[in-house]
Design a protein around this nucleic acid. Sequence first.
DNA 1: CGGGTTTGACCGGCGC
DNA 2: GCGCCGGTCAAACCCG
Length: 310
Amino acid sequence: MEDKEGPDPAGTEFKSDSSSSWTLAGPDSVSDSINYFFDRESSILSEFGWNILQPDHADEIERFCELNRTDASRGLAGNFSGSQSQSCGAAGGVGGSCSGAASNPDGSAELPTSNPSVSSSSSEDPPEKSTGFGGKPPEIPSKVRKKGQKRIRQPRFAFMTKSEVDHLEDGYRWRKYGQKAVKNSPFPRSYYRCTNSKCIVKKRVERSSEDPTIVITTYEGQHCHHSVGFPRGGLISHEAAFAGQFTPGVSQFYYSQGAQLHRGISPSTTQSQQLPIEVRESRALPEPTSQLPKDEGLLGDIVPPGMRKT
DNA sequence: CGGGTTTGACCGGCGC
DNA sequence: GCGCCGGTCAAACCCG
């Protein structure tokens, strides 16, 4: 299962998206986002012993964007068109009870009836065995899901990591629930769920078809519990930092679905241009989230300010 | 025996 | 309407 000793990638890239929103952004916003994110967080990540590469893998980024655009254009667009939805509303996900809110695509705070992940995660703790993960999935089971009810997607966050191992240790325990061959890629994509029954976080792991040394890990959702263990001698890994603790409403980046998206992907793009759009969906966010200063960044809740270089 | 993985089947959404 | 494809289910299997 969770193979590996602590990962020691040659480098890591990261990208984020808030796939529940997909608000239109300018053609340069992707690279802007990456550059901005990189600039702001790389120094923090370096504290964890990770060597962060410059975000110049245009091809991979492009592919990632393509991937997400595909998601958005395939059956999920309806969910993306709305504003943020959450499952585990506790900001930072530390010790919070799983609660959350979602808003419908119209932006109202009304909870859609098709939002099972939120209600189920907050009000019940299915006692099913782990092998029975199908018994209470985070989303409406396809067999139960009514027509017209669309799957609610959680904010997603992707990493590109140079690594020998596919499934990098991130401090959380994951259960694999599926594997699929990916079109136009010789490498399969693996699907994982957090083993915590209250937690609906999922992640996808796949290798880049263009650079097999790069592992693309996409997290979806937000952990509502502590990680089970910290790799790297007690330090939480960068993946855990982002995957588990990033806070919707704080510094997430929107990618455009537009065709001109690719044009913005260039290492030469400077952050002097438009900064990424920050999500400010205070309406749908639970209390704790708003307590987090937006400047804290994605690591803000786990990295003491004193640790930072910036 | 409990917990995790494998893998084929199934489902829903989109494009044509 | 049909086929494609991503995502998920769940039975079977594996392992400690």
